[in-house]
Amino acid sequence: MKLDGSYTIPAPREVVWQQLMNPETLAKSLPGCERMQPNPDGSYQAELKVGIGAVKGSYQARIEILNPVSPERYRMKVEGKGAGGFVNGEGLLTLTENGSAQTLITYSGEAQVGGVVASVGQRLLQAAARQIVSQFFQAFAKQVQAVAFPPPSTDPLIPSSPR
């Protein structure tokens, strides 16, 4: 299955890049991410509870970032197992400046789905994948917003930006 598209994040490219490389931001943005930990080889291990409507499945995913060219592009490789099947994907993410305050993230990749989802879900797979990707970018945009434009703190004792 081919997956491609783009998403505009209202933040400068440097900020977007930093946040894409930030495991904490990723963990907060990945739909249904219940845990994410670094592996010794630099990849990440994540527990994801992914769902569309009543369909929900838990996946153990290994996420790897390959050939990063800061702040322009990197390849991402995801290997997920669980819920009666597997999802393996690899794709290229490219960051383009769209003026000084916006960044266009373009992604293009290929995913291989196996198991029950592959055998019964072809009708909805593409749309469901797009929905999950869009959920990620929406959540990610929020995270980036919080970093780039921290809301003014109402309580001077609580810092307004993440630690």
Partner: peptide, 21 residues
Amino acid sequence: GKILAGGHSLVPMMKLRLAAP
């Protein structure tokens, strides 16, 4: 929790174990 009405959408997904409320 998951609501079951006529069961013609939910039950097939449960049988496939795509949904497991």
